[in-house]
Design a protein around this nucleic acid. Structure first.
Length: 471
RNA sequence: GGUCCCAUCGUCUAGCGGCCUAGGACGCUGGCCUCUCACGCCGGAGACACGGGUUCGAUCCCCGUUGGGACCA
């Protein structure tokens, strides 16, 4: 595919809620396409639905975009600030005789639709108002586009190829509602053309809207942009992904402890691929992204693979960055209070030993808690299994020896353990597991020597002694 | 119901007529490593929806069937 035009693409969400996975994927593909072709990425807020649009949603969407690193070059534009432009275009079609006023009420339309259905005809607008010469008193009209009912409209889609629609199937769609607001299909055309959009990349739920939009472009005397309709993202039951499939909003993934690069990498591979490669840096994504390697079939969202990628990116992430992210989570949890923050270098060593078994930042936070809180939450089953009365002498001996370890580091601690284990003729596990439970409250943690080193001599000794006392 | 789209392991996908006894990844699973859990390493099970063509030869091209999805209501 050769891109000859100056690439200008847009992402146009409706601010009726949070930014969802499907929207992110659309935004991401537009962004990648723009960056790959050194084009322009435009953000447009489609807020003509006054009843459902909120400023709060706009804020959430912008914040999510920023978190994902999807920066835009122009905008955000809001449709509600462009009402004059839409009216101007409606007037133009009216003057050209390509649009007409329609006084039918929703109730009338519904009744006639049912009639048509009952008679076995397609429920298409019957053009009752088309030949109307005088306005109907007491009614505010909507404006309908006079569409052609002969021939075909062919959508040349960059992903689907040529898709043919019989014009006969298309009815005269409303372009301006009686309340004066433009309808979606009209506003989108006017916006895309006035913003010089070169490629419309959007979900394929809009494919059926495209022929009527093409007719509008033509009626208005504009060249249509290129189109690329992306396959949908489905839930595990293969229906369109929605809230009932679990977490779908970007904000949820943030609070679940995901890294933006994991989400970006995962979503880029949903419906797109480049050979066998699974892991892509942002730069690689920009370099390799192409619309002709986007698949046609819808894809099922698989949270487990996202977890795997998140784990991968946690291993790759800079320790300073992870420390700050972890700190934020700990503060939200109340585990760390303002002015009582842990030493950053110490926190980094803690993060370092936790990353390997953290699939999410939330998991990391859970693992960090025993190191930060004064007390631990004891898992009773673990206690019953490993902290039995007979280990008390062994633990006493260990604390006595740990007290004199200096410097209190991994290797020195390991030496103490090995010596004690050798003297008693037991396996390391017999000592390590009880200590692990005493220190963390559970049976799962990083390596025991690392745990002890990071926890520090004082806390270690205190906890083991507390455990002994409880036996 | 009408219109449009889609179809390779459970899932994401590679494959663009012979390289395919179909490759990779997630997940699942056997083993190794091991102080726990992981990580890592080695191995395993697992798919071309079906039926017709076209062709010397079809996962790959065409048609139909089936199935799924989206849109319009």
């Amino acid at each position: 595919m050769s891109i000859t035009r100056n690439v200008r693409v847009r992402f146009a969400p409706s601010p009726t809620g949070a930014l969802h996975i499907g929207g992110v994927r659309t935004a991401l593909f537009n962004w990648l396409f723009a960056r790959h072709h050194k084009g322009t990425f435009i953000l447009r807020i489609e807020d003509t639905d006054q009843t459902r649009s909120t400023d709060e949603s706009i804020k959430v969407i912008l914040d999510s975009m920023k978190w994902l690193g999807l920066d835009w070059d122009e905008g955000p534009f809001r449709q509600t600030e462009r009402m004059d432009i839409y009216r101007e275009h409606v007037d133009r079609l009216l003057k050209l005789g390509k649009a007409y006023y329609c006084y039918c009420t929703p109730e009338e339309l519904e009744a006639r639709r049912k009639e048509a259905m009952a008679a076995g005809k397609p429920p298409k607008y019957d053009r009752k108002c088309r030949s109307l010469k005088t306005p109907i008193e007491g009614r505010t009209p909507a404006v309908r586009f006079l569409s052609s009912d002969e021939g075909q409209t062919i959508v040349r889609d960059l992903i689907r190829g040529a898709v043919t629609f019989e014009n006969q199937q298309l009815d005269d769609l409303i372009i301006q509602r009686s309340d004066g607001f433009p309808t979606y299909n009209f506003a989108v055309v006017v916006d895309d053309v006035t913003m010089s959009i070169s490629h419309v990349i959007r979900g394929d739920d809009h494919l059926n809207n495209t022929p009527r939009q093409i007719q509008l472009y033509e009626a208005l005397g504009y060249d249509p942009p290129e189109f690329a309709h992306l396959p949908m993202i489905l839930g595990s039951d293969k229906t369109k992904l929605s809230k009932r499939h679990g977490a779908t909003a970007v904000t949820e993934y943030i609070s679940l402890g995901y890294l933006p690069e994991a989400l970006v990498n995962y979503l880029s591979r949903l419906g797109w691929s480049s050979g066998d490669q699974e892991i892509f840096s942002r730069q690689e994504l920009i370099e390799k992204f192409a619309l002709d390697s986007v698949g046609k079939a819808p894809s099922v969202f698989n949270p487990e693979k996202l977890v795997w990628l998140n784990h991968h990116y946690i291993q790759q992430a800079d320790l300073n960055r992870l420390s700050e992210l972890l700190l934020d989570l700990l503060k939200k949890d109340g585990a760390v209070t303002e002015g009582n923050e842990p030493d950053r270098e110490w926190l980094k060593t803690l993060v370092k030993i936790l990353t390997e078994r953290s699939h999410t930042l939330v998991e990391m936070k859970t693992g960090a808690l025993p190191f930060l809180l004064d007390g631990i939450t004891m898992d009773e089953k673990a206690k019953a299994k490993h902290l039995t009365p007979d280990v008390a002498p062994l633990l006493s001996e260990l604390t006595a020896r740990l007290r004199s370890v200096d410097p209190f580091t991994h290797t020195e601690i390991e030496t103490v353990f090995n010596a004690l284990v050798a003297e008693k003729g037991i396996k390391l596990g017999k000592l390590a597991q009880p200590v692990r439970v005493a220190l963390t409250g559970g049976t799962v943690s990083p390596g025991i020597f690392a745990v002890i080193e990071v926890m520090g001599k004082e806390k270690t000794v205190k906890r083991i002694e507390a455990a002994i006392c409880s036996l």
